[in-house]
Design a protein around this nucleic acid. Sequence first.
RNA 1: UGUCCUGUAGUGUAAUUGGCAACACGUCUGAUUCUGGAUCAGAAGAGUCCAGGUUCGACCCCUGGCAGGACAACCA
Length: 564
Amino acid sequence: MLSENLRNESLEEKSKNFLEEIIEEDIRTGKHAGRVLTRFPPEPNGYLHIGHAKSICLNFGLAQRYGGKTNLRFDDTNPTKEDVEYVDSIKEDVHWLGFDWAGEYYASDYFEQLYEWAIVLIKKGLAYVDDQTQEEIRTTRGTVNQAGKDSPWRNRSVDENVDLFKRMRNGEFKDGEKVLRAKVDMAHPNMLLRDPILYRIIHTEHHRTGDKWCIYPMYDYAHGQSDSIEKITHSICTLEFDVHRPLYDWFIEKLEIFPSHQYEFARLNMTYTMMSKRKLLQLVQEKVVMGWDDPRMPTICGLRRRGYTPEAIRFFTEKVGIAKRDNVIDLSLLEFCLREDLNRRAPRRMAVLNPLKVVITNYPDGQVEQLEAVNNPEDESAGKRLVPFSKELYIEQEDFMENPPKKFFRLAPGQEVRLRYAYFMRCNEVIKDSAGNITELRCTIDPASKGGNSPDGRKVQGTIHWVSAQQAIKTEVRLFDRLFTKANPDDVAEGEDWKSSINPDSLKVIEAYLEPALAEAKSLDKFQFERMGYFSVDYDSKPGKLVFNRTTTLKDTWAKISGQ
RNA sequence: UGUCCUGUAGUGUAAUUGGCAACACGUCUGAUUCUGGAUCAGAAGAGUCCAGGUUCGACCCCUGGCAGGACAACCA
C-alpha cells in the first residue's frame, strides 16, 4: 500500500509544468476535441533506466490526469541493433512501474504505409534516390557554418526515382548502394533539413518482419508518421530532438496527414550516475557489473533488484519536475524518496553485519527466552514478533568503543546500553587476542529491565541491536556503493576514458547474522535492519542460503558527528 | 563563424501571466524518541546571468550582450 504521505503528495494541488499548461490550453480551445493521446516510444536496443522512468511517468501521468490514454510503441527501424530480449524487458519494466498501455505498436507495423508515403513524396518531387556513397553524402552535407552541395542525382525524373526505389525494396542493390532522400534544401541552416535520408538498404533480418524488408526507414521519417498514424495528440520527447521538429512538421505538412505535435523536455541526469545507454551496455559487456539488472545499475531492473519500489520511483519522478533546462539531480533526492516509502512499509528486523561476540555472564547457560518486538513502529497493523535471547549474542563492532569520545552513546567499558526489546546491559570486561584485537565482551544484564525498560526509571543513552548467536542465521549480504567516484562520471582528465571514474569498491560482500524470523524471506522482500538500513532479498538466494542486498543505509547522524 | 533551446538559493522546481521570490531535497539548530531512524519546531541560504529600455511597478515585456546545451550517424 502506498503510504499516506506519498499519496497526499501526488494529489496535492501543485503548480503545473509547461506541458500541463499546453494540454489544458488545448483542451480549453477544443483542439483534437479535447482528446489526449500520448505514447512512450523506446527503441528495443537496451534496457530502460531511471531516465526512461521519468519519460514513462510523464507520458502515462499526463494522459491519466487529462482522461487520455498512452500507447507503447517500439521504435524498431534498425534491425542491426534491436532484439526481442529488449522488447520483453521494456514491457516488464513499464508494467512494474505501474502502467498499462492502451495499444502496443511497433514502427515496423507501419512499414507498408511508410513505403507508400515515400512513393507519394517521390511523385510530388519531394524525394529522390541518391547513388552517392556514404562518404560522399557526408562530405557534401557541409558543416554547421557551411552550406552543403546538391547531389548529382538530385534531379532524377519522378519515374526513374519510383523505379529505383521499388528496385531498392526488391533487393536489387547491396547495402549502402543507394538511399532515398527528401528533397528540401542543401543550404538549410538546420543540418537536418539538408536532404535527410529517408530509407537505407539493410539486408538484415528484422526481429518482427523477418526478411520481408531490406530497406528500412530512418528515425525522422518513421517517428512522426507513426505518431500521426496513431493520432497521437502530444508527442513528448527529450530536448535533443528539438532540432528535428521542423522535419517532423515538414513530413506531416507534405503528406497532409494527421497533425501530431512534438514537445520537448529536459532529460534526467543524476550525480554519480551514467545514463548513456551505450555506456551502460559497455559496462554489461565488459563485465564491470553482473548484468543489466546489477543492483548498482540505474536501470529499472537494477533498481528493482536493489530493492527500490515502483512507488518510490514514481514519487521521485514527481519531485524532479518537468522543464526545459538542463539539470543534474542529487542522488540524495532519489534516496530520500526511497526511504520515505520504505520507512512506512518495510518490516523491521535485527541483523548484525559486523559481529562482535558478547557473553552475558549473569545469564543462565542454555536458557532461551522469546522476547516481543514491534514489526513496524510506523504501522501498528504490522504486528509483533518474537526474537530469541540467550547468553551469547552478537552486536555490531561499531557499537563498542574501548575509549569512547564524549558523544558516543553506545557500549563502552563500564557503560550501560539498552539491547533493543531486551535488557539493559553493562560491559564489564574486554577480551583481546594476542594481537590486541577485541574478540569478546563480558557483560551483565539487569534482569529487572526485561523488555527494555528499567522499573527504577533510569535512562540509558543508547539502544543497540543484537542477535542471539545460537539462533542467528548466517547469510550473504551485498553492500553497494555508487558505481562512479565522480559526481559527473564523464568529467575526466584529458586523454582519460570515462571508465577511469568507475568506483573499484562499489561492491562489498560480507557475511551477516540475522534474527531467525528472516529465514522465510522471499525474493525481493524488503526489510529495515534496525539502525543499519533497508535490505532486499536478492534473486541469487537459494533455500537455506539467503542473499540480501543493501538497498540503502539509514540517515546516519552519528556518522556525521564522528566525521566518517 | 550558422540555426535552435535554456539561464531563479548548493541541487531541482514554482511565482495566480507585470504587484518587491515560494516549495522540496540538502545543510544547520532545538524538542522528542526503546532505531543517533522516523516525527515535530525553527534557522541560514537567491534579489532572479549582465547592461540598457518600457512601466507607478519587471523573474515575467523589448533591445543588446554573456554563459551553458543541442545539431554536421545510411543511430534513435
